[in-house]
Amino acid sequence: MVFALEYEGITKEYRSWSGRRRIRALQNFSLTVECGQIFGFLGPNGAGKSTAIHLAMGFMRPSAGNGRMLGMSFGHVRTRRRVGFLAENVALYHRRAGSAIRFYGGLSGLRGGALEKAAHAALEAVDMQAESARNLAQFSRGMVQRMGLAQALVNDPELLILDEPTSALDPAARVAVRELLLRCRNQGKTVFLSSHLLSEVELVCDRVAILNRGEVVRTGTLSDMLETTDRVEIVAQGIPLSSVTEGIMDGSRVRFTVTKGGQRTSIERVWAAGGEIISVSPVRRSLELLFLELTRANSNGENRAPEASET
């Protein structure tokens, strides 16, 4: 099976000029990203996210280990023609928007009518076609970021690697980018999305990896990761609030949580009191909470959280 991205035991050390000072950005880092999904790549500042991305793009070489992108070694030149990349704080040459996208499309090997068509489509995808005659020097930070996204899309890539694609965007543009990412997935593209905006990751990603201090502390599907293992929420009606512990009234319904072990007993108690069970569902925590739990635990030197299913 060809993965979109494969990191195999990669370690990356930055060394000072003299070689005395060393900073380990990634430590025995392994990760696989399947094709056709939106993969969220999370981690606090300095966790090694950008290093991992730059390694995949061939901007730097690993100190140990190896990796593949679309089945070829990291840095393989022709493979990069099948990839779209948006760097964090993207910087582009100051040209007219249309000319800039044609320039980056040309670097991807496009030419003639195909290039014109692709440049038009890329600008349209980020809603910038009306600005195609304006110079990038006159653009706001958010507009430049949208242009960065357009240059990543111009070669109709199989794999999109996006480092903080929405950090400078307004809410409306964020929604548009989210829809764009979902469209890309529906077209069979793979999206590798590094972001600090956990709410967005939660909305679009199929799978997530959380990185801390250069190591993957958790990978898995969002549903696996957000579901706690020990509590369920029960919604019942026709019983008094006093009949349950730590319950709340929600209209005529009573909402309360119990451990999974006590779920059966609680349901039977509701029935015995003449009540009706409306729903029983696992308690889900937010990605933000999970992120903080994992990154704080690791920063404090506590035991790392167990890994979820790794493909």
Binding site: M57, R81, A87
Partner: peptide, 11 residues
Amino acid sequence: RRVLAVLSKGI
């Protein structure tokens, strides 16, 4: 940082 967008292409 403009080099990133250039070298991310197939060159």
